[in-house]
Design a protein around this nucleic acid. Structure first.
Lengths: 184, 184
DNA sequence: ACCTGAACACCGTTCAAGT
DNA sequence: ACCTGAACACCGTTCAAGT
Protein backbone atom coordinates (compact mmCIF):
# COMPACT_ATOMS: atom_id res chain seq x y z
CA UNK A 1 0.00 0.00 0.00
CA UNK A 2 1.30 3.42 -0.93
CA UNK A 3 2.26 5.79 1.85
CA UNK A 4 -0.48 8.33 1.07
CA UNK A 5 -3.04 5.53 0.91
CA UNK A 6 -2.11 4.37 4.40
CA UNK A 7 -2.34 7.89 5.70
CA UNK A 8 -5.69 8.50 4.03
CA UNK A 9 -7.15 5.30 5.42
CA UNK A 10 -6.10 6.38 8.90
CA UNK A 11 -7.55 9.85 8.42
CA UNK A 12 -10.84 8.39 7.24
CA UNK A 13 -11.10 6.11 10.26
CA UNK A 14 -10.36 8.99 12.59
CA UNK A 15 -12.97 11.17 10.91
CA UNK A 16 -15.46 8.31 10.95
CA UNK A 17 -15.00 7.85 14.68
CA UNK A 18 -15.99 11.48 15.19
CA UNK A 19 -18.87 11.54 12.70
CA UNK A 20 -20.35 8.20 13.76
CA UNK A 21 -19.99 9.34 17.35
CA UNK A 22 -21.97 12.46 16.54
CA UNK A 23 -24.53 11.15 14.08
CA UNK A 24 -24.63 7.41 14.57
CA UNK A 25 -23.95 4.64 12.08
CA UNK A 26 -26.24 6.33 9.53
CA UNK A 27 -24.24 9.56 9.49
CA UNK A 28 -23.35 11.23 6.21
CA UNK A 29 -20.41 9.62 4.46
CA UNK A 30 -19.89 12.89 2.63
CA UNK A 31 -19.16 14.52 5.97
CA UNK A 32 -16.74 11.75 6.87
CA UNK A 33 -14.83 12.35 3.65
CA UNK A 34 -14.87 16.12 4.16
CA UNK A 35 -13.62 15.80 7.74
CA UNK A 36 -10.89 13.44 6.60
CA UNK A 37 -9.89 15.90 3.87
CA UNK A 38 -10.29 13.38 1.05
CA UNK A 39 -12.55 13.12 -1.96
CA UNK A 40 -15.61 10.89 -1.75
CA UNK A 41 -14.02 8.50 -4.22
CA UNK A 42 -11.14 7.88 -1.82
CA UNK A 43 -13.51 6.90 0.95
CA UNK A 44 -15.23 4.46 -1.41
CA UNK A 45 -11.93 2.97 -2.49
CA UNK A 46 -10.97 2.15 1.09
CA UNK A 47 -14.45 1.25 2.33
CA UNK A 48 -16.79 0.14 -0.47
CA UNK A 49 -19.85 0.01 1.82
CA UNK A 50 -20.97 1.74 4.98
CA UNK A 51 -20.73 -1.57 6.82
CA UNK A 52 -17.08 -1.92 5.82
CA UNK A 53 -16.38 1.41 7.47
CA UNK A 54 -18.43 0.66 10.59
CA UNK A 55 -16.87 -2.79 10.76
CA UNK A 56 -13.37 -1.31 10.78
CA UNK A 57 -14.49 1.02 13.54
CA UNK A 58 -15.71 -1.89 15.65
CA UNK A 59 -12.67 -4.13 15.71
CA UNK A 60 -11.50 -2.80 19.05
CA UNK A 61 -15.07 -2.70 20.28
CA UNK A 62 -15.57 -6.41 19.71
CA UNK A 63 -12.38 -7.16 21.60
CA UNK A 64 -13.58 -5.11 24.55
CA UNK A 65 -16.88 -6.95 24.66
CA UNK A 66 -15.18 -10.33 24.40
CA UNK A 67 -12.65 -9.51 27.12
CA UNK A 68 -15.38 -8.28 29.42
CA UNK A 69 -17.54 -11.31 28.75
CA UNK A 70 -14.72 -13.80 29.25
CA UNK A 71 -13.83 -12.06 32.52
CA UNK A 72 -17.37 -12.50 33.82
CA UNK A 73 -17.91 -15.54 36.02
CA UNK A 74 -21.65 -15.62 35.40
CA UNK A 75 -22.22 -17.85 38.40
CA UNK A 76 -24.77 -15.65 40.16
CA UNK A 77 -27.93 -13.92 39.04
CA UNK A 78 -26.51 -10.48 39.84
CA UNK A 79 -23.27 -11.18 38.06
CA UNK A 80 -25.09 -12.09 34.88
CA UNK A 81 -27.41 -9.09 35.19
CA UNK A 82 -24.46 -6.70 35.49
CA UNK A 83 -22.90 -8.30 32.46
CA UNK A 84 -26.14 -7.84 30.50
CA UNK A 85 -26.16 -4.18 31.53
CA UNK A 86 -22.60 -3.72 30.29
CA UNK A 87 -23.42 -5.53 27.04
CA UNK A 88 -26.42 -3.27 26.44
CA UNK A 89 -24.22 -0.27 27.21
CA UNK A 90 -21.69 -1.43 24.66
CA UNK A 91 -24.47 -1.93 22.13
CA UNK A 92 -25.42 1.70 22.53
CA UNK A 93 -21.94 3.15 21.98
CA UNK A 94 -23.12 4.62 18.69
CA UNK A 95 -26.67 5.39 17.67
CA UNK A 96 -27.79 2.73 15.21
CA UNK A 97 -25.15 0.26 16.36
CA UNK A 98 -27.55 -2.33 17.79
CA UNK A 99 -29.65 -2.14 14.68
CA UNK A 100 -26.63 -2.48 12.41
CA UNK A 101 -25.37 -5.51 14.31
CA UNK A 102 -28.80 -7.14 14.31
CA UNK A 103 -29.02 -6.74 10.54
CA UNK A 104 -25.60 -8.34 10.20
CA UNK A 105 -27.00 -11.51 11.69
CA UNK A 106 -29.20 -12.13 8.66
CA UNK A 107 -26.57 -11.11 6.10
CA UNK A 108 -24.05 -13.88 5.54
CA UNK A 109 -21.76 -11.58 3.57
CA UNK A 110 -21.82 -8.65 5.99
CA UNK A 111 -18.44 -7.11 6.89
CA UNK A 112 -19.77 -7.10 10.45
CA UNK A 113 -20.01 -10.87 10.54
CA UNK A 114 -16.59 -11.23 12.21
CA UNK A 115 -17.44 -8.64 14.83
CA UNK A 116 -20.72 -10.38 15.55
CA UNK A 117 -19.10 -13.81 15.69
CA UNK A 118 -16.50 -12.69 18.22
CA UNK A 119 -19.19 -11.42 20.55
CA UNK A 120 -21.38 -14.49 20.07
CA UNK A 121 -18.48 -16.80 20.85
CA UNK A 122 -17.82 -15.13 24.16
CA UNK A 123 -21.53 -15.07 24.95
CA UNK A 124 -21.82 -18.74 24.28
CA UNK A 125 -19.03 -19.54 26.73
CA UNK A 126 -20.59 -17.33 29.39
CA UNK A 127 -23.93 -18.99 28.81
CA UNK A 128 -22.35 -22.37 29.53
CA UNK A 129 -20.99 -21.12 32.83
CA UNK A 130 -24.31 -19.54 33.77
CA UNK A 131 -26.12 -22.76 32.98
CA UNK A 132 -23.69 -24.80 35.05
CA UNK A 133 -24.23 -22.45 37.99
CA UNK A 134 -27.98 -22.80 37.62
CA UNK A 135 -28.51 -19.15 36.77
CA UNK A 136 -29.86 -20.07 33.35
CA UNK A 137 -32.16 -23.07 33.38
CA UNK A 138 -34.24 -22.54 30.25
CA UNK A 139 -33.28 -23.81 26.78
CA UNK A 140 -31.80 -20.80 24.97
CA UNK A 141 -28.78 -20.04 22.83
CA UNK A 142 -26.41 -17.10 22.62
CA UNK A 143 -28.07 -15.85 19.43
CA UNK A 144 -31.37 -15.50 21.16
CA UNK A 145 -29.94 -13.62 24.12
CA UNK A 146 -28.01 -11.41 21.74
CA UNK A 147 -31.22 -10.55 19.90
CA UNK A 148 -33.07 -9.79 23.11
CA UNK A 149 -30.33 -7.45 24.30
CA UNK A 150 -30.14 -5.81 20.87
CA UNK A 151 -33.89 -5.30 20.94
CA UNK A 152 -33.74 -3.66 24.34
CA UNK A 153 -30.88 -1.47 23.15
CA UNK A 154 -32.87 -0.37 20.10
CA UNK A 155 -35.91 0.33 22.24
CA UNK A 156 -33.82 2.35 24.67
CA UNK A 157 -32.24 4.31 21.84
CA UNK A 158 -35.55 5.20 20.19
CA UNK A 159 -37.31 6.12 23.42
CA UNK A 160 -34.32 7.78 25.10
CA UNK A 161 -34.59 5.52 28.13
CA UNK A 162 -32.61 6.03 31.31
CA UNK A 163 -30.12 3.41 32.47
CA UNK A 164 -32.46 2.22 35.24
CA UNK A 165 -35.18 1.43 32.73
CA UNK A 166 -32.77 -0.57 30.59
CA UNK A 167 -31.64 -2.50 33.65
CA UNK A 168 -35.22 -3.26 34.59
CA UNK A 169 -35.97 -4.72 31.15
CA UNK A 170 -32.80 -6.80 31.24
CA UNK A 171 -33.79 -8.09 34.67
CA UNK A 172 -37.11 -9.28 33.29
CA UNK A 173 -35.33 -11.12 30.49
CA UNK A 174 -32.83 -12.70 32.86
CA UNK A 175 -35.67 -13.69 35.14
CA UNK A 176 -37.24 -15.42 32.16
CA UNK A 177 -34.04 -17.37 31.61
CA UNK A 178 -33.70 -18.39 35.21
CA UNK A 179 -37.01 -19.89 36.17
CA UNK A 180 -38.73 -23.00 34.96
CA UNK A 181 -41.74 -22.31 32.79
CA UNK A 182 -45.10 -23.04 34.43
CA UNK A 183 -47.45 -25.40 32.68
CA UNK A 184 -50.86 -23.99 33.51
CA UNK B 1 -62.52 21.65 3.12
CA UNK B 2 -62.74 22.02 -0.64
CA UNK B 3 -63.87 19.03 -2.68
CA UNK B 4 -60.54 18.60 -4.47
CA UNK B 5 -58.72 18.83 -1.16
CA UNK B 6 -60.78 16.00 0.29
CA UNK B 7 -60.15 13.90 -2.77
CA UNK B 8 -56.42 14.60 -2.74
CA UNK B 9 -56.14 13.73 0.94
CA UNK B 10 -57.83 10.40 0.23
CA UNK B 11 -55.58 9.73 -2.74
CA UNK B 12 -52.49 10.47 -0.68
CA UNK B 13 -53.56 8.09 2.07
CA UNK B 14 -54.25 5.36 -0.46
CA UNK B 15 -50.87 5.88 -2.11
CA UNK B 16 -49.16 5.96 1.28
CA UNK B 17 -50.71 2.64 2.24
CA UNK B 18 -49.12 1.09 -0.84
CA UNK B 19 -45.74 2.80 -0.56
CA UNK B 20 -45.38 2.26 3.20
CA UNK B 21 -46.42 -1.33 2.64
CA UNK B 22 -43.65 -1.73 0.08
CA UNK B 23 -40.88 0.37 1.59
CA UNK B 24 -41.75 0.74 5.25
CA UNK B 25 -42.30 3.91 7.25
CA UNK B 26 -39.10 5.43 5.83
CA UNK B 27 -40.27 5.14 2.23
CA UNK B 28 -39.84 8.05 -0.16
CA UNK B 29 -42.49 10.73 0.27
CA UNK B 30 -41.77 11.80 -3.28
CA UNK B 31 -43.00 8.42 -4.46
CA UNK B 32 -46.12 8.74 -2.33
CA UNK B 33 -46.91 12.08 -3.98
CA UNK B 34 -46.17 10.70 -7.45
CA UNK B 35 -48.38 7.66 -6.86
CA UNK B 36 -51.16 9.89 -5.56
CA UNK B 37 -50.81 12.10 -8.61
CA UNK B 38 -50.25 15.29 -6.62
CA UNK B 39 -47.36 17.71 -6.29
CA UNK B 40 -45.02 17.35 -3.31
CA UNK B 41 -46.37 20.58 -1.89
CA UNK B 42 -49.85 19.12 -1.67
CA UNK B 43 -48.60 16.20 0.37
CA UNK B 44 -46.88 18.62 2.75
CA UNK B 45 -50.00 20.72 3.07
CA UNK B 46 -52.05 17.73 4.21
CA UNK B 47 -49.32 16.01 6.21
CA UNK B 48 -46.61 18.41 7.41
CA UNK B 49 -44.41 15.61 8.75
CA UNK B 50 -43.83 11.97 7.97
CA UNK B 51 -45.28 11.06 11.36
CA UNK B 52 -48.50 12.88 10.53
CA UNK B 53 -48.88 10.69 7.48
CA UNK B 54 -47.96 7.47 9.27
CA UNK B 55 -50.23 8.45 12.15
CA UNK B 56 -53.18 8.84 9.81
CA UNK B 57 -52.38 5.44 8.37
CA UNK B 58 -52.44 3.86 11.84
CA UNK B 59 -55.81 5.01 13.13
CA UNK B 60 -57.50 1.78 12.13
CA UNK B 61 -54.48 -0.19 13.21
CA UNK B 62 -54.66 1.11 16.77
CA UNK B 63 -58.32 0.20 16.94
CA UNK B 64 -57.55 -3.33 15.83
CA UNK B 65 -54.89 -3.74 18.49
CA UNK B 66 -57.15 -2.33 21.19
CA UNK B 67 -60.07 -4.53 20.19
CA UNK B 68 -57.87 -7.60 20.16
CA UNK B 69 -56.34 -6.73 23.50
CA UNK B 70 -59.65 -6.00 25.17
CA UNK B 71 -61.00 -9.30 23.85
CA UNK B 72 -58.13 -11.20 25.45
CA UNK B 73 -58.86 -12.69 28.86
CA UNK B 74 -55.20 -12.91 29.84
CA UNK B 75 -55.99 -15.35 32.62
CA UNK B 76 -53.60 -18.09 31.52
CA UNK B 77 -49.94 -18.11 30.55
CA UNK B 78 -50.75 -19.39 27.06
CA UNK B 79 -53.46 -16.83 26.52
CA UNK B 80 -51.09 -13.99 27.34
CA UNK B 81 -48.36 -15.49 25.18
CA UNK B 82 -50.67 -15.70 22.18
CA UNK B 83 -51.66 -12.12 22.74
CA UNK B 84 -47.99 -11.08 22.85
CA UNK B 85 -47.44 -12.91 19.57
CA UNK B 86 -50.33 -11.06 17.97
CA UNK B 87 -49.08 -7.74 19.34
CA UNK B 88 -45.63 -8.36 17.91
CA UNK B 89 -47.23 -9.31 14.60
CA UNK B 90 -49.18 -6.08 14.57
CA UNK B 91 -45.99 -4.17 15.35
CA UNK B 92 -44.41 -5.62 12.24
CA UNK B 93 -47.20 -4.68 9.83
CA UNK B 94 -44.88 -2.17 8.20
CA UNK B 95 -41.11 -2.15 8.24
CA UNK B 96 -39.99 0.56 10.65
CA UNK B 97 -43.30 0.63 12.47
CA UNK B 98 -42.03 -0.64 15.82
CA UNK B 99 -39.15 1.81 15.67
CA UNK B 100 -41.45 4.70 14.79
CA UNK B 101 -43.81 3.88 17.64
CA UNK B 102 -40.95 3.52 20.11
CA UNK B 103 -39.64 6.93 19.13
CA UNK B 104 -43.10 8.40 19.66
CA UNK B 105 -42.89 7.41 23.31
CA UNK B 106 -40.15 9.94 23.95
CA UNK B 107 -41.68 12.70 21.84
CA UNK B 108 -44.51 14.43 23.69
CA UNK B 109 -45.61 16.25 20.54
CA UNK B 110 -45.57 13.26 18.20
CA UNK B 111 -48.65 12.78 15.99
CA UNK B 112 -48.37 9.11 16.96
CA UNK B 113 -49.00 9.87 20.61
CA UNK B 114 -52.73 9.12 20.32
CA UNK B 115 -52.08 5.85 18.55
CA UNK B 116 -49.58 4.86 21.21
CA UNK B 117 -51.89 5.89 24.03
CA UNK B 118 -54.77 3.79 22.72
CA UNK B 119 -52.59 0.70 22.63
CA UNK B 120 -51.07 1.40 26.05
CA UNK B 121 -54.51 1.84 27.60
CA UNK B 122 -55.66 -1.54 26.39
CA UNK B 123 -52.38 -3.13 27.47
CA UNK B 124 -52.74 -1.69 30.93
CA UNK B 125 -56.20 -3.20 31.33
CA UNK B 126 -54.97 -6.58 30.12
CA UNK B 127 -52.05 -6.38 32.51
CA UNK B 128 -54.46 -5.92 35.41
CA UNK B 129 -56.36 -9.04 34.41
CA UNK B 130 -53.16 -11.03 33.99
CA UNK B 131 -51.95 -9.91 37.39
CA UNK B 132 -55.22 -10.88 39.02
CA UNK B 133 -55.01 -14.32 37.46
CA UNK B 134 -51.46 -14.71 38.75
CA UNK B 135 -49.94 -14.88 35.26
CA UNK B 136 -47.95 -11.71 35.91
CA UNK B 137 -46.45 -11.54 39.38
CA UNK B 138 -43.54 -9.16 38.91
CA UNK B 139 -43.77 -5.38 39.25
CA UNK B 140 -44.00 -4.03 35.69
CA UNK B 141 -46.10 -1.53 33.79
CA UNK B 142 -47.64 -1.51 30.32
CA UNK B 143 -44.94 0.87 29.04
CA UNK B 144 -42.23 -1.58 29.90
CA UNK B 145 -43.98 -4.51 28.24
CA UNK B 146 -44.65 -2.35 25.22
CA UNK B 147 -40.95 -1.51 24.97
CA UNK B 148 -39.93 -5.14 25.29
CA UNK B 149 -42.30 -6.21 22.54
CA UNK B 150 -41.19 -3.30 20.34
CA UNK B 151 -37.57 -4.31 20.89
CA UNK B 152 -38.28 -7.89 19.88
CA UNK B 153 -40.17 -6.64 16.82
CA UNK B 154 -37.22 -4.44 15.80
CA UNK B 155 -34.79 -7.31 16.32
CA UNK B 156 -36.98 -9.63 14.26
CA UNK B 157 -37.26 -7.06 11.50
CA UNK B 158 -33.52 -6.44 11.27
CA UNK B 159 -32.54 -10.10 11.44
CA UNK B 160 -35.44 -11.41 9.34
CA UNK B 161 -36.50 -13.81 12.07
CA UNK B 162 -39.10 -16.51 11.60
CA UNK B 163 -42.33 -16.45 13.60
CA UNK B 164 -41.14 -19.30 15.83
CA UNK B 165 -38.08 -17.33 16.90
CA UNK B 166 -40.20 -14.32 17.77
CA UNK B 167 -42.52 -16.51 19.81
CA UNK B 168 -39.56 -18.01 21.66
CA UNK B 169 -38.26 -14.57 22.65
CA UNK B 170 -41.71 -13.48 23.78
CA UNK B 171 -42.01 -16.64 25.88
CA UNK B 172 -38.77 -15.77 27.66
CA UNK B 173 -40.08 -12.30 28.45
CA UNK B 174 -43.42 -13.64 29.67
CA UNK B 175 -41.59 -16.18 31.76
CA UNK B 176 -39.69 -13.30 33.30
CA UNK B 177 -42.96 -11.61 34.19
CA UNK B 178 -44.47 -14.72 35.69
CA UNK B 179 -41.96 -15.99 38.17
CA UNK B 180 -40.71 -14.48 41.37
CA UNK B 181 -37.17 -13.23 41.16
CA UNK B 182 -34.60 -15.34 43.08
CA UNK B 183 -32.49 -13.59 45.69
CA UNK B 184 -29.19 -15.43 45.45
C1' DA C 1 -58.25 28.00 -0.34
C1' DC C 2 -55.74 24.87 -2.56
C1' DC C 3 -52.56 23.09 -6.08
C1' DT C 4 -48.41 22.93 -9.00
C1' DG C 5 -43.88 22.33 -9.97
C1' DA C 6 -39.54 24.69 -10.09
C1' DA C 7 -35.81 25.40 -6.99
C1' DC C 8 -32.52 24.46 -3.37
C1' DA C 9 -29.76 21.69 -0.32
C1' DC C 10 -28.05 17.35 0.77
C1' DC C 11 -26.50 12.80 0.06
C1' DG C 12 -24.77 8.29 -2.05
C1' DT C 13 -22.27 6.60 -5.80
C1' DT C 14 -19.59 6.43 -10.06
C1' DC C 15 -15.93 7.48 -13.09
C1' DA C 16 -12.96 10.15 -16.30
C1' DA C 17 -9.07 12.79 -15.69
C1' DG C 18 -5.09 13.54 -13.30
C1' DT C 19 -0.44 12.43 -10.64
C1' DA D 1 -1.68 2.69 -7.75
C1' DC D 2 -4.12 6.08 -5.86
C1' DC D 3 -6.53 10.54 -5.64
C1' DT D 4 -9.67 14.26 -7.08
C1' DG D 5 -13.81 16.29 -7.94
C1' DA D 6 -17.33 16.77 -11.36
C1' DA D 7 -21.50 14.50 -12.50
C1' DC D 8 -25.78 12.02 -11.88
C1' DA D 9 -29.80 10.37 -9.46
C1' DC D 10 -32.64 10.74 -5.62
C1' DC D 11 -34.88 12.83 -1.85
C1' DG D 12 -36.91 16.25 1.59
C1' DT D 13 -38.60 20.74 1.88
C1' DT D 14 -40.02 25.39 0.55
C1' DC D 15 -42.40 28.83 -1.95
C1' DA D 16 -43.75 31.87 -5.81
C1' DA D 17 -47.01 31.55 -9.27
C1' DG D 18 -51.22 30.00 -10.64
C1' DT D 19 -56.52 28.74 -10.40
Amino acid sequence: MRADAVRNRERILEAARVEVGLGGTECSLDNVAKRAGVGPGTLYRHFPTRDDLVGALLLGWADEVRTDTDATAGDTWDDVLEWLVRLADHSMLYRGLASTLAAAEADEASPLRTVHAVVLGAMSRLLDRAREAGVVTVPVDADEISRLVAGIAMSAEQANLAAAQVRSMLAIVLNGLTQARPNN
